[in-house]
């Protein structure tokens, strides 16, 4: 089955971890993830300047490694990301901001990517809230 997974919460929210565990289970069971789409505070789950205490789960690193390892299509909504200060080098240069906190494997793109994934997938599974 083809899954699209949307995440609306930051890395410190348990729902971000649940989304990651679900995504891992999807692949482990032989299904396909057509796209991950991070929206609203979900853009923080892709930020690479989150520093997690050593004895806690580093969810942003785990997300990054998961997406890289399986060469998934990891899309972060550009409008939601700009609003929350999650910028790749291109956007940081465009808006003359000093910090870059998003890079590969994540791509910044628009809401069309969410609709495209919804059309392509058999199931859309959303994670948000606490």
């Amino acid at each position: 089955m083809k899954f699209a997974i949307a995440l609306y919460s930051a890395a410190h929210a348990p729902s971000s971890r649940r989304a990651l565990l679900f995504a891992q289970a999807v692949l482990a069971d032989g299904h396909e993830i057509v796209r991950l789409f991070f929206y609203q505070d979900g853009v923080y789950s892709a930020s690479n300047n989150i520093v997690t205490p050593q004895d806690e789960q580093d969810i942003t690193r785990q997300w990054r490694e998961f997406v890289s390892q399986h060469q998934l299509d990891g899309v972060v909504c550009i409008a939601a990301a700009l609003r929350r200060g999650v910028l790749n080098s291109e956007e940081a240069a465009r808006y003359q901001r000093s910090a870059v906190n998003l890079d590969a494997p994540w791509a910044l793109s628009g809401l069309g990517q969410l609709h495209d994934a919804i059309q392509d997938a058999d199931r859309l599974i959303c994670f948000g809230g606490p």
Partner: peptide, 19 residues
């Protein structure tokens, strides 16, 4: 917060694609 606007943005984006 931005949630109401962001929900509406999904709807309008879908409308732009005639979905």
């Amino acid at each position: 917060g931005p949630s109401a606007r962001e929900a509406l943005d999904i709807v309008l984006a879908g409308g732009a694609f005639d979905l």
